[in-house]
């Protein structure tokens, strides 16, 4: 084997390989710097108003055609349910749930509705390797079950523990989560079922940026009532649904240690090395190879031995 053919092969394969894998890496940067839609809708949730009636749970159940729950929606014993020492969470049969907390800094219990927060730069979306999620211009994070492979990386990635999976389905298991009532309501500009159903006006539906102004005004106009923080304004890059509370957020079960940056920012450093490795490595190791085998007549000892044996 001559050196020429070997080097040609090398150049060809390395370049081909690099080109093939560069494309996704480049696209990754484009997708990674997604900032959310300026006119996206959102929901302001005022925890101080919630009385834990679970009407929103019932409304969601009907709107999303979910199966009937084991206990009726007016049963408050669910607030005492514990699973592995944890309060209830969203499941494939309930896109939203209300939990009760006993905050230290207040005499009364506090109720909190949990559903997808429709992040500006959703971790579920950016972690999905088939791009099953989509952040719509209206602000909803929706999901396409037709392409989902079921790797469940989105469940790993979601910082709020939202997506659930229909594990019990054999042929078509899919992710289930709140979709902001996108198909039935949001698309037409109507507020979601849970928001509309609430008898206490806990939730306000509107443009995210307008709601943010309202949220801060509410804090300012009612001194001492709220803690001075809008949960979801900055958390993981900002969320479409955000919260006001009269007790520190950790006492209402929120994760207050989440980064301010979107989750994908964590991963960008790694993605940045991809093109570097792809371009530098081939040259580097080909160089090593040529250096290491320089001066040997056949350049390649193994070929050499085989050549001899095979009587070339």
């Amino acid at each position: 084997m001559s050196k020429i053919t070997r080097r040609k092969f090398l150049a060809g394969s390395a370049a081909g390989g690099a080109a093939m894998m560069m494309t996704p890496a480049k696209k990754a940067f484009a997708a990674g710097s997604f900032e959310g839609f300026p006119d996206g809708m959102g929901v302001l949730v005022d925890l101080t108003r919630c009385v834990g009636c679970r009407t929103c749970e019932a409304a969601c159940n009907v709107e999303q055609k979910l199966p009937e729950p084991a206990l009726p929606f007016d049963d408050t014993s669910v607030f005492d349910e514990m699973h592995h020492g944890q309060k209830r969470r969203t499941t494939d049969k309930a896109y939203t749930i209300v939990n009760r907390y006993e905050p230290k800094s207040a005499d009364e219990p506090l109720y909190r509705k949990i559903q997808c927060n429709h992040c500006n730069e959703p971790a579920c979306l950016t972690s999905c390797f088939v791009n099953a999620y989509k952040k719509t211009p209206e602000g909803a994070v929706i999901y396409n079950s037709k392409v989902c492979v079921g790797c469940r990386n989105c469940m790993i990635a979601c910082p709020f523990h939202i997506p659930a999976y229909t594990y019990s389905s054999v042929l078509n298991p899919v992710i289930k989560k709140c979709i902001f009532c996108y198909d039935t309501r949001l698309k037409e500009g109507r507020p979601p079922a849970c928001v509309e159903s609430c008898p206490q006006q806990v939730m306000t539906f509107g443009k995210r940026k307008d709601l943010m102004v309202i949220a801060h005004e509410r804090i300012k106009k009612n001194p001492g009532k709220y803690v001075d923080h809008v949960y979801g304004e900055k958390e993981v890059g900002g969320t479409g649904w955000f919260y006001l509370s009269n007790v520190p957020f950790e006492e209402a079960g929120f994760d207050v240690n989440l980064p301010k940056k979107p989750i994908i920012d964590n991963v960008k450093d790694f993605l940045a090395i991809v093109p570097m490795v792809l371009t530098i490595w081939p040259a580097l190791f080909t160089g090593f190879h040529l250096l290491a085998t320089k001066g040997k007549s056949h350049g390649h000892g193994d070929d050499n031995s085989h050549d001899k044996q095979e009587g070339h």
Binding site: T23, P24, A25, K27, A28, A31, G32, T126, S127, C128, F129, V130, N131, A132, V147, C151, N153, I264, V267, F270, L271, V274
Partner: peptide
Amino acid sequence: YSFGPAAVLFLVG
């Protein structure tokens, strides 16, 4: 069929 190139798992795959 459907690419999610920002995903690390995409790279792994």
